[in-house]
Amino acid sequence: MTNKALEKMRHHHGLIQSTKGGWRIGEAVYNHGFNMLEELVGEVSYFQLVLLNVTGELKSKQLCDWLEASYICMSWPDPRIWCNYIGALSGASRTTPAAGILAGTLASDSKMYGPGSLPNCMKFLKGLKSNLSSGMNFEEVIRLNRDSNDGKINIPGFSRPIAKGDERVGAMQRVGKNLGFTKGSFEILALEFETHLKNNHDESINIGGYTSAFLLDQGFTPETVYEFTSTRVTAGVQACYSEYANKAKADFLPLSIEDIAYTGQPVRQLPTKKALK
């Protein structure tokens, strides 16, 4: 009986094989065949580098400028937003910048908002296209969604906490137009679906849904998008961290005892050891 798993581990033992690149001391830093310091530094944008590192392909400046703009859309300097709140708290408690800003960024790895929501948005749009191809209509897709969500419509990419509508979609449509992009099939589908939702259910597309449609049209997979969008709230967290790191210590939204509403067990005596047996 062969043990391919063991053979594979022994083959990889003490060895790194990279398709990405690496440092050859005294020679160069290679990145996907490029000499990084001579051919990439000063020649490509940071977002071209990010996409090169994730996808292995040097994408167009046009696409990477779109991506950069979408990052700006996701980074608001408002500490009421969940991830930013953590940045502000961290700044006020003098956590180091890296820890505080990364803690906030990590909090955005959420299914409700942030990069963690994009794979589900993309899967929904792919499923929507497939459902329509197999003869379903928008309302039937919505009914399916409602049936699997205890009677509530909860469509990834087509609702938003706190507000209805999403000003970032219009901003990104403008960016796309200025950069010369034309609407692809997923964007057209997503906007048609939004029209139906708006007219019938008072919900509309959000930035996650729009970004997902655009990136599907660019040929990206949900897994790849999750990788290259993982830090897209960071600039907002940085703003909130920085503001409170430079104010008095512990000066972010101080809580009094009454700001916590205790709902638990009343004050009680510890049971005897015997009672716990």
Binding site: E258, D259, I260, A261, Y262, T263, G264, Q265, V267
Partner: peptide, 8 residues
């Protein structure tokens, strides 16, 4: 206010 059943 923030409800919690853990700590009073």
């Amino acid at each position: 206010s923030t409800p919690t059943a853990i700590c009073l």
